[in-house]
Amino acid sequence: MIALRLALGIGLLFIVSLIIFGATELLPGDLAQQILGQGATPETLAALREQLGLNDPAPVRYWNWLSGALTGDFGVSLSNGRPISELIGARLGNTVFLALYAAALAVPISLILGILAALWRNSIFDRAANAGALTAISFPEFFVAYILVLWLAQTGLFPSMVRINPTTTFGDRIYMTFLPALTLTLVVTAHMMRMTRAAIINLMASPYIEMARLKGLSPLRIVLRHALPNALAPIINVIALNLAYLITGVVVVEVVFVYPGLGQLMVDAVSNRDIAVVQAVALIFAGAYVALNLIADVLSTITNPRLMHRR
């Protein structure tokens, strides 16, 4: 069962890599033309094609690209000629740090808020939380970010730009990255809270919860023993979906706070039309996204007795 899911996930990753690679085949002209521009002589074009291996058939180039990527070698940047793995290096760590930071704040907050809103359905708390979440969802990330800058950075509490380097201590990192992490948290919490609430409400309406109440069990026992085991799968999916959402949010937030991460790198590469870098970063983001969904899938399979204990 789980092996099948894993196999499917790996298959999906493979297809995703195919799509990302295949997209470049849609380029008008080819990569060499792209790099050298319209004024290039046929000789230089031919030489560059040779150098980049563009004369090989597409499957060969795909294989070279993918096998390179798997060993951490993404080729060289088209705009400055540096190895892409070098460009990615520290930035990957920074982005992962930011995402984890935001997740560590967002997951507990939104689960607690979502469960409370579901249990106190239609109360003032529920309505306020809902209206707040709806508003937060409606704000563009950069709007949230600048409001925080105006509010918290203007007063000098936190820095509005993140200047970190490999020698920055962990404590300083936490401090300096607070605003970007808070921005992401606000945006993601809203989504996650609404989904958690919906999942719990859906669950509390099931006949077996009524049965538990009719057995005379205490509300706490009903929630912990009867609702929670069944809520795990939907909650896991909600978390995975929103962590995946962080991947998108991180791009904008990194630009606002001039945070040296992958999102910043990707935006610059898109502006320069540096397809090699864009491909590499897209592969990393998409891979993380697929992996998160895969983990969620496996975890919710494990927590579902219908799937674990066949007839």
Partner: peptide
């Protein structure tokens, strides 16, 4: 859809 929308 297995590629995040903004990234794609």
């Amino acid at each position: 859809m297995s590629i995040p929308a903004l990234i794609f």
